[in-house]
Structures are given as structure tokens and as C-alpha cells.
Design a binder for these strands. Sequence first.
RNA 1: AGAGUUAACCGAGGCAGUCGCUGUUUUAAUGCAUUUUGCAUUAAAAGGGAGGAAAGUCCGGGCUCCAUAGGGUAAGGUGCCAGAUAACGUCUGGGGGGAGUGAUCCCACGGCCAGUGCAACAGAAAGUAAACCGCCUUAUUGCAUUCGUGUGAUUUGGUAAGGGUGAAAGGGUGCGGUAAGAGCGCACCGCGUUAAUGGUAACAUUAGCGGCAUGGUAAACCCCACCUGGAGCAAGACCAAAUAGGGGAGCAGUGUUUAGAGCACAGAUGUGACCCACAUCGUUCCCGGGUAGGUUGCUUGAGGCAGAUGGCGACAUCUGUCCUAGAUGAAUGACUGUCCAUGACAGAACCCGGCUUAAUGGUUAACUCUAUUU
Length: 127
Amino acid sequence: MSDTIKHHEQKFERKQRLLLPSDYKFVFNQSMRSSDKLLTILAKKNAHKNHPRLGLTVAKKSVKTAVHRNRIKRLSREFFRLNKNTISCADYVILVRKGIDQMSNETIVQSLSKQFNYLRKQLNKNK
RNA sequence: AGAGUUAACCGAGGCAGUCGCUGUUUUAAUGCAUUUUGCAUUAAAAGGGAGGAAAGUCCGGGCUCCAUAGGGUAAGGUGCCAGAUAACGUCUGGGGGGAGUGAUCCCACGGCCAGUGCAACAGAAAGUAAACCGCCUUAUUGCAUUCGUGUGAUUUGGUAAGGGUGAAAGGGUGCGGUAAGAGCGCACCGCGUUAAUGGUAACAUUAGCGGCAUGGUAAACCCCACCUGGAGCAAGACCAAAUAGGGGAGCAGUGUUUAGAGCACAGAUGUGACCCACAUCGUUCCCGGGUAGGUUGCUUGAGGCAGAUGGCGACAUCUGUCCUAGAUGAAUGACUGUCCAUGACAGAACCCGGCUUAAUGGUUAACUCUAUUU
């Protein structure tokens, strides 16, 4: 029984993504941000939702080939899925900078975990 | 064995495990509508899930909407011939030219005797050719002389064989010829032209004739022949919240009235400190257009595979068999273990046929050259 609950928790469903352009606009307006050389993460609390939601923006400008764009998106989603329980309840948008396509999967994941940690502290403070 | 040519095929390196994503099918549960059942949500199981270039968007076609009697012009494209095809700038076969010892590969390969234009520098002269040096020659004359002539200067003409310039000097080579030369004559080659033969044709071969006329450049304008209507799946079709506005119908506070209409009064909001005043304002339902959003288009197709028949071949016809991604902020991934030859370029977005570009390894087949052995 406890196993099935665990499985359920590791899923990444549609309602956990940002789907509409208006959702993205909501996050871009006056959000909290954390950034380093590779990534910028925007976060904003959403009163109507009781689970975190993720959106990705990988511009063709910053990452040229589609293969690398897909890789970065997949990595980000995978990280979000696996660490959902530690991430505070809010809407997030991950923005990507030039040069990230040169990095290995490990370094990208490290960057993600650092920044989500930082954002969690900030969001808790504001409570 | 080495080097090479052509063609076909494979290629998130393979295997195992854990956790995910996204369609499909089946089953179950719940909800709604209901004649069978259908739709939606959730769960479980089974099975499917990027490429040879998916790329560039350079051509061609299907499909969709708009336009369209027919013809012409403009603009753009194609350019040896014949065929294949839905069509093509693709492919096949053939002709011509070029590269390579060869297998084989490469070619924008119509027309400059319709017109217009362009070509630096050099050079005497560059497209109705031209005499700088040289060669030959006429006349006068100097010098030498073995008295035959030789040699120099000026001069009259001839000459495109030689030198020099140039990307290119107005057919080439050889012999004859000549004062020296010259298609001046001849032979061969080239070119032009006529005929015959072969071929559907491009073209080839043979024979005759011409003494050479027609320099290059058309990815220069241009001429000739042929082809092309425009926009694209964000095409297009359907459903359709909220707000504002449009059309239609009903209903509407209090008083007056039998009732309605009408009239009067009241009400709400704004301006304002407030009053007066001024300005604005019913409400419910339906209809049509239509935004956000959703559904569809969306994968069964000029399809793949096998066989037979026709064709040199591209390909066509017939029979059998198979269904093999369909996302929509956009699925095909992450981690761990293990093995090896340590893994390139790179990610579907309506669908096909090509081309081009990117990049790397392997397998197979046929053929060529070189070396060795027999």
C-alpha cells in the first residue's frame, strides 16, 4: 500500500505543468528569481493551486540544436519529478542561458538543485 | 594481400534492472445521457513510440481555401535526344565533350551568319585587319674586288614563312611552288556545305563539293522552344465561456386606473464636503456573428514486403500479405550495473517524390588496378 502511494507521488502529470500563455505571463510578472551562469528560475506563489507547477523556456537563440534543447527540457522535468516533495508549492519557469548545451547532465542537475533550495528558503521566509 | 570504384543495408552502441512521459487496445469502477449502448474521468494489464539525413526549405506534387470562359503581356524558371513519373530542376537509357592505366566519374550541353553591348595592359596592327624587326625586290650611291660579285646607306614596291607583343595575330602539318612568300597548288587533319546510309531522335559513318568565308563572350542584354494562377495545416472545418456591442421577444417598484397604455413620483451610479443641479442607467430569455479555449484536419499512403509477368532500364500491371510515431509549451527520457570496437551528424510537427548540406563507423555484393603464389 505504501508502495503505490510512493509511485503515485513520483508521477509528473499534466496539471503539474504550465500549459497556457496566460500561466506564463502570471509568473513573469513580479516573480522571485534565482540565477547563475546556466539558468534562471522564476517562482511565484499561486493561491489557487496546492501543488507546484513547472514551465520551461529554452530559446533557440541560447541553444542552437533541437537535440540539446530536448535534453535540457527532459533533464529539468526529470529533476522536478524526482524532487517534487522538497519543492515549495508555487509556479516556476526555468529560463536557459547561452552555453548550457556545452555542460554535462551532472552539472546541470547540480545547478537546478542549488537554485530550488535557495527558492524554497526565500518562499518560506515570506510566509 | 593492398589500393580503389559503384550499389544496397544497418546505425538514440548492446544487454539487464528501477522510476517516469505519450498514443492505441482490452478490462474494471464512477458520473452523465440512454433502446441496444455512447461520452467523460480514474485505475490496471498488454502492446507501440524519431532519421538517413527527421535538417536546409532549394525544386516538384497531393490536400485545403480564394480566384478562374478563352487568349495575350509582364515576371520567374527550364534548356543535347528519347523515355519513366502524379510531377520535377529528379531518375533511366542513349548521343556529344572532358578526366582517369582502369572499374568509373564529371558537364548550364539551344542560338553570337536578328540586333545591341563588352574585352585592362602590351603590341606596328585586335575583326571591313595590320609591315616594328626580318625576308625579297626597284633605283641611286659608298666601300671592297680574284671584275663573277660581295657588303653598307637611302629609296620603290612585294611578303603574314621566321622574330617580338598578347588570353587571342584571321585554319594546322608536310611537300611542291616562288624574287621572297602566300590555300597559290596538292595530300592528310580540321571547318563549312550537299547527298546517301544507319538511327524514333540527339547524332554517327561514307562519298562529293568549297580554298576557308563563320574569332571569343548569351550563369551580358537578348532571340527561340517549353513550363508556371495565388496563398498555405497558424490551410481549412466544427463546438464555444466571459465582457462590450447588434437583432428579436417577454416581464418590470409606488401612485393614478376595473385592467392596460400614458403620466407623475421614486430608485441606482458618477461629479461634489453637502444640498440644489447636471449626466448616465431597466431586467430576463432567445438569435446571429465571434474572442479566449477546445475538437477536428492527423496519419491507410502515388504505403511497405514477397512473388509472377512486361521492359536493356527508370518503372508498370497483377496476386498475396502486413499496418509500422502522431505530440500540441509540444511524448520517445533519467539513474544504476555490466560488456565491447568507447558510440558521428543530429529530434517527427499535414503527407509524399527529389536535390543539397552535416557527419561517422560497420556489413554485404559486383567490378577495376597493382603485387605475390600456383
